[in-house]
Design a protein around this nucleic acid. Structure first.
Lengths: 222, 222
DNA sequence: ATCATTTTTTACAATTTTATTACAAAAACA
DNA sequence: TGTTTTTGTAATAAAATTGTAAAAAATGAT
């Protein structure tokens, strides 16, 4: 189920939105300020954010900027809420990377429609991104992130990681890995796989031990 | 000057909008039904369309659908007008690809502000100038500037650069580049791409290393 | 046809990646 | 526990890939 974070300081409006989105079948998380929102985002990674850009404390625009600059969260679509009068806020928001906007007062049906459209768009994009326990792989850009830090892998290391990520918790023998990643036919004796696993683990730093070796069997990501 | 087509059957409202948009400096074309609108669109290709979705005859939604499915016109931003009561029309309109909406009755200031936002967005897309980290390409004049200094590229170098600029951060294999820029079908073995990348990098001087090579994968602009 | 320019190919150097090896460490086995 | 097998990994050798200058081929204008 899609998780939607609402960042809105006006209690009445926030609760109204929450009520309607829950009714529409979404999993709703409410935050009444941008600081708390950041914590929620870190913890639960919502699928979409509804953000009022006029708020006391950390400004909505600042939060937006923060999000759109982070590789981990930049893909989350953001709908900004703005007072009808302040068109300049909308322009600023859109320039910072907001995906859509809605002006107060607005109808809940329209909001839900916008959410549906954005979530659909997002899914198309997100298909090339794999995440597992803090490891993010962007298949299109050939990039790997540990939390927010990019690391550089060689081609085979990348392939190996992607293979594991695509089949988490599944055990593979060395010859299975050889045939799937290297395209070798036979159960040739070689230490190639071990060697690559070793260097991959090293580059994955603290996440390296997610690749476990099962003696006499093979390797698993777990 | 930007041409805006107003499709609205109520004379009073249409003329009111027309008056205000003219005052705001737009070139206004009025149409009182969707059928005529189609002809206008074909003939003058407006820069933006304001469309009432509740009209006799050919429905506004049908016109919208037609437009958004046509590759020739799908880029024209559409603002739909709807009675506040019929939210379902707005929802339908947004799903069909409308870019924004406004509910009756509305203030002309708000309408003009929305138009400004959409035209700005559109211009960014339609603009024949691409800029990326100090590299400016004028597609119309076939000119390239580094910072503000013009450099001369050959045809293929230019095409290659434009291709990269149109898909920044996306990785392309050599055969993808060959097929997209050269129009070659197969994964022919040739060093042509490398050779062009090399000379392009050289001409891009300090920006040359924006084109990165990913060993065993291809090239990216990043 | 000739000349200038652009594009492709070639050849070789430089770089990067990959596979192997060797030995240490850990695990399995008896 | 001692021995054997398996795994971890640094170092090195081998292979593959990439960079690029220069030659060859193609293109196009005069």
């Amino acid at each position: 189920m899609n998780k939607i974070l609402i960042v809105e300081d006006e209690d009445a409006l926030r609760e109204l939105i929450a009520f309607n989105l829950t009714k529409a079948g979404y999993d709703v998380i409410e935050s009444e300020n941008a600081n708390d929102a950041l914590i929620f985002i870190e913890e639960i990674t919502p699928d979409l954010i509804i953000l009022d850009i006029m708020m006391p404390g950390l400004k909505g625009t600042q939060l937006l900027q923060l999000l759109k600059r982070s590789p981990k969260f930049s893909h989350i679509p953001v709908i900004i809420i703005s007072a009808r009068s302040s068109e300049s806020d909308i322009v600023e928001g859109l320039e910072l990377g907001a995906d859509d906007y809605i002006t107060k007062p607005f109808s809940m049906k329209v909001l839900v429609a916008k959410i549906k459209i954005l979530l659909r768009k997002k899914q198309e994009k997100t298909e090339n991104i794999i995440e597992y326990k803090g490891i993010i792989v962007d298949l299109e850009k050939y990039k790997v992130f540990l939390n927010n830090k990019e690391i550089t892998l060689t081609y085979k290391e990348f392939e190996l990681l992607v293979f594991f990520l695509k089949h988490p918790k599944k055990v593979f023998s060395r010859s299975q890995l050889l045939s799937n990643i290297w395209g070798y036919d036979a159960d040739i004796f070689t230490r190639t796989v071990d060697s690559h696993v070793s260097s991959l683990r090293k580059k994955l730093e603290d996440k390296g031990n997610l690749i476990k070796s099962l003696p006499k069997v093979g390797y698993v990501l777990d």
